[in-house]
């Protein structure tokens, strides 16, 4: 069986369902998820439910496992030698780590945008078309490319130079191209790992605006070191920290407004206000 994850039917969306996230309220759910690199437990027993069509920010100090957690949500850790997952990651009621699940299909449904824009050394058009082409897209490719570029707020800037190399675009434009490439294959969730950390303030604000727009259609999970950015753009915030064994774990998951004005945990408060001890 190559594709075990099916799109939810209307019946599943409207019902409470047997699964934890099969009812559409949660796009993805980590249940007692731990990540090991060899013997080292990088992330310990994460339980979090990510609401659908919202932006969830993951914040925390360096080494707390933010990016590791993010990569677990579309099996990118499979590509790291020695990485092992325990627990479950439920996507539409299915554990994406079940043996019969095709990781390539997982990554199509749950896309990823990285810290550094990584367009292919091809034309702008091909960057967007590529993913859908290998997925066997049979529709109007021009129309699909335009739609993806418009959704990524890039169309007006590139519509007259679609055949030019993507590498000629500015950093901010390249990042939006990568977002266009991610949404071209119509994922349900977009994971973003520090998507604006390499960009100037104006390009950063454009990406943040774009994320807000995209969250009407997609669930976004974003890892960021920039707490002001997390506070500005996200609906929910997950704060991770490290324990004495250097294992990352989830301290608090709540409405962003609550986390940044009146967090429930002292360690969250200490971190966001820049305190220690």
């Amino acid at each position: 069986m190559t594709i075990a994850i099916e799109r939810p039917t209307q019946a599943q969306i409207g019902s409470s369902g047997a699964s934890a996230n099969g009812n559409g309220r949660y796009a993805i759910e980590a249940d007692a998820m731990s990540v090991f690199y060899g013997d080292f437990c990088a992330v310990r027993e994460v339980r979090m439910k990510v609401p659908t069509n919202k932006i969830t920010a993951i914040i925390g100090p360096s080494g707390c496992g933010k990016s590791t957690v993010l990569r677990c949500f579309n099996r990118m850790n499979d590509l790291i030698a020695g990485a092992r997952i325990e627990g479950e990651v439920l996507f539409q009621g299915h554990n994406i780590y079940d043996a019969e699940v095709d990781p390539v299909e997982v990554r199509r449904r749950i896309g990823m945008v990285f810290q550094k824009a990584n367009p292919f050394p091809k034309s702008i058009y091909e960057n967007v078309a590529w993913g859908t082409r290998i997925n066997g897209f049979r529709g109007d490719m021009d129309e699909m490319v335009e739609r993806a570029l418009r959704s990524a707020a890039l169309w007006e800037e590139v519509k007259d130079k679609l055949q030019q190399s993507a590498l000629g675009l500015s950093g901010g434009q390249q990042q939006r191209l990568c977002i266009a490439r991610a949404i071209a294959v119509e994922p349900e969730i977009i994971l973003m790992d520090e998507p604006a950390s390499a960009l100037d303030p104006i390009a950063t604000l454009r990406i943040e605006d774009l994320m807000k727009e995209l969250s009407e259609k997609y669930t976004i999970i974003v890892v960021t070191h920039n707490m002001q950015q997390a506070a500005r753009i996200s609906d929910f915030t997950a704060f991770f920290s490290v324990d004495d064994n250097r294992s990352g774990h989830l301290i608090e998951f709540d409405d962003t407004e609550k986390v940044f004005t009146n967090p429930g945990q002292k360690s969250t408060e200490d971190y966001i206000t820049g305190r220690f001890g």
């Binding site: 707490m227 002001q228 506070a231 940044f260 004005t261 009146n262 967090p263 969250t268 966001i272 206000t273």
Partner: peptide
Amino acid sequence: QQPMARDLR
């Protein structure tokens, strides 16, 4: 300073 939480309050 973009104060947060208790500092902001």
